[in-house]
Amino acid sequence: MTLDQIKAFVAVAEELHFGRAAQRLRMTQPPLSRHIQKLERIVGVALLKRDSQRVLLTDAGRAFLEEARRMLTLVDTASDRARRIASGAAGTVRLGFTAVSAISTLGTLLRQLSEHLPEIDVILHERVTAGQVDGVLRGELDLGLARPPFNVSSIDSRVVFREPLCAVLPVGHPLTTLDRALTPDDFDGQPIVSYNPGQARYFHELTVQFLTNAHPRIEQQVHQILTAVLLVAAGRGVALAPASARSLGINGVVLRDLIRGGSDPLNGNSGVAGKPVELHAIWDRGSTNPALWRVLDLLPSLD
Rank of each mutant, 00 (worst) to 15 (best):
C166T: 15
A21W: 08
S270E: 11
V222G: 01
D179Q: 14
Q199P: 00
R294T: 11
R70C: 00
R256L: 03
V133P: 02
G235I: 00
V43H: 04
S244D: 05
L169W: 01
G261V: 11
E126A: 13
G274R: 06
L292V: 10
L298G: 06
H280V: 03
V93A: 03
A243R: 11
G131W: 06
P149R: 11
V229G: 01
L279S: 04
A22F: 09
V136P: 05
H17I: 00
W283Q: 07
G135H: 10
R217P: 01
I225S: 02
V128Y: 07
G198M: 14
L266R: 04
E278D: 09
Q29M: 07
P148N: 07
R260Y: 01
Y195E: 08
K275F: 01
T105D: 05
D284K: 10
G262V: 04
T2G: 14
P118K: 05
D80K: 12
S87C: 01
F64A: 03
G91L: 05
R246G: 01
F97A: 11
A13T: 13
L145D: 11
R20V: 07
F210I: 02
V159L: 11
C166G: 00
G139P: 04
L143Y: 04
N289F: 00
L266P: 03
I6C: 07
K49C: 00
W283L: 06
T183A: 08
F9D: 11
P118R: 04
R294V: 02
L145Y: 11
F18M: 13
H125S: 13
V122F: 14
A291S: 15
